[in-house]
Nucleic acid binder design. Structure first.
Lengths: 207, 207
DNA sequence: TAAACTATCGACCGATGGTCGGTAGAATGA
DNA sequence: TCATTCTACCGACCATCGGTCGATAGTTTA
C-alpha cells in the first residue's frame, strides 16, 4: 500500500521517530529498519529524504541544540530576574531533562551514544557561547563579574556544566553530588570573579 | 598455512595492530577483517583471544591511560622541580602527542572516534584524579594553593585540559590558541587559588 | 605412540546501512 | 478527457559487518 504525504511532513515524521529511538535505544543500537517499521515506510523512502543514517543524527542534534538555545534566549531576556540567576538558569536549561522530554537525560548520555553526545557538545558550545558572552559582558559592566577572558571562561563553564552533570562521564554515587555541585559553583564564582558566595543559593536548584 | 605462537604474544600482536588502526582510521571505521589482514590470522583466532571488537577497544584504552599515568607518576615524583611545574607537566603528559606516538593526537580525537574518546576521558579522569589529589594537597600544605574543593577542582582541570586541547571538540583557528591557553591558565590559577600569574610561564610550553 | 590440550582455521550466519530500477498517484497541459 | 511530467514511494537486492562454530594442525603430556 502506498500513502503519499507532502515532503516536509514525512521528513518530520522520520525525524521525530528517529529522535525518540536514538535517545532511548542509542544511535548505534537503532537500525534504519527500526525507524522504517515505526514510521511505516519503505527503505527507499527513508533514503529519499536523508542521504544516510548519520545525516538524520546531525539534523536531530541541530534541533536539540536549537531548542535549548531558544530556552536560554527566553530566560536571558527577562531583565526582571537578577543577572546571575538568569545565567545559571540559561545554563541549566540546556539539560534536556527540562521541558518536555523528561527521562531522556539518562538515556541520551550513555556510552552507546558517544557519537550523539560528542556532536551535541560541540554544537551546543558553538551556539550558546555568544549568548552568554553578551550576558557576562553585562555583568562585567555592572561590576559583579571580574574576569580577563570572558569567552574562554564561558566555554569552560558550559563545558564543565555539561560534562559534569549531563553526561554520565563521571560515574558518581548519589552521595557525591552535593560536594560536586558545591565545587562546581565555587569554581564558577572564582572564574567569573564574583564576590564569594554569589552562587551559593543555586545549590538547591540541582535537585 | 598455520603459524602457532604463544598466547600472550598473539594477543599483543592483535592489540598493537588494532590500536594503530583504531587511532588512525577510527574505531567504527576499522573492521575486524582489517585487523585480521594485517596480523595475518583467521577470524576464529581473533575471537579466540577477544570476546568482541569492543573488548579490544577497552584493553587498548586501559593501556593508553596506564601509559599516561606512568608518565605523570614519574614527573610528580621528581621533587627537584617546583610543584606547580610538576602538576602542569603531569597534566600535559596525558596528551598522547608526547612520547612515542606523535601525529596520533589529531587522529585519535575525531568525530569518528567518539566512543574511544569518551571511554578514554572517563578512564583517564578516574585514574589521574587520585595522583593529582596528592600533589594538590602538597600545594595546600605549602600555602601556594588555596581551595575548598580539591578533588572537584582537579576533576574540572583535567576535564578542561583534555576537552579544550586534546579533543577536537572545539574547532578553533590557529590564531585563537594563545587566548585559549591564557584563558585556561588564568582560570586554573583562580580555581587552585594561587597568586595571580603563578602559571604565566607555561604559556610557551603549549607549542 | 596414543591421548589431551592449545592455538588456529575459514565457511557460515543474521543483521546492517545503503542502492536502484521501477511505479503509483497527484499535478499539469492540451 | 487523456497524455505527460513530477514527486513520493516501494521493496528486492547488495556488500560488508561483527560474531559463531565445528574441524584440525601442532605441541605437550602420559
Amino acid at each position: 500500500m502506498k500513502t503519499v504525504k507532502e515532503g516536509e511532513v514525512r521528513k518530520q515524521e522520520i525525524l521525530l521517530v528517529a529522535r525518540e529511538l536514538f535517545v532511548t535505544k542509542g544511535y548505534e543500537q537503532t537500525s534504519v529498519n527500526d525507524i522504517l517499521k515505526i514510521v511505516d515506510i519503505a527503505k527507499g523512502t527513508f533514503y529519499y529524504y536523508f542521504a544516510s543514517k548519520e545525516e538524520v543524527l546531525a539534523a536531530i542534534i541541530l534541533d536539540i541544540v536549537e531548542e535549548g538555545t531558544k530556552r536560554a534566549e527566553r530566560i536571558l531576556k527577562d531583565k526582571s530576574v537578577p543577572l546571575v540567576n538568569r545565567i545559571m538558569m540559561a545554563i541549566m536549561a540546556q539539560s534536556p531533562e527540562f521541558e518536555g522530554s523528561e527521562e531522556i537525560r539518562d538515556e541520551m548520555h550513555k556510552v552507546e551514544n558517544a557519537k550523539l553526545e560528542q556532536l551535541y557538545t560541540k554544537a551546543m558550545l558553538k551556539r550558546m557561547t555568544p549568548l552568554l558572552e553578551v550576558a557576562v559582558a553585562e555583568g562585567v559592566a555592572a561590576d559583579v563579574f571580574h574576569l580577563d577572558y570572558p569567552r574562554e571562561t564561558i566555554e569552560s563553564i558550559l563545558l564543565l556544566g555539561h560534562m559534569l552533570f549531563d553526561c554520565n562521564i563521571m560515574d558518581w554515587e548519589m552521595a557525591d553530588y552535593p560536594a560536586k555541585i558545591q565545587g562546581f559553583l565555587a569554581n564558577m564564582e572564582r572564574m567569573l570573579g564574583t564576590k564569594a558566595g554569589a552562587l551559593e543559593d543555586f545549590l538547591q536548584m540541582f535537585a
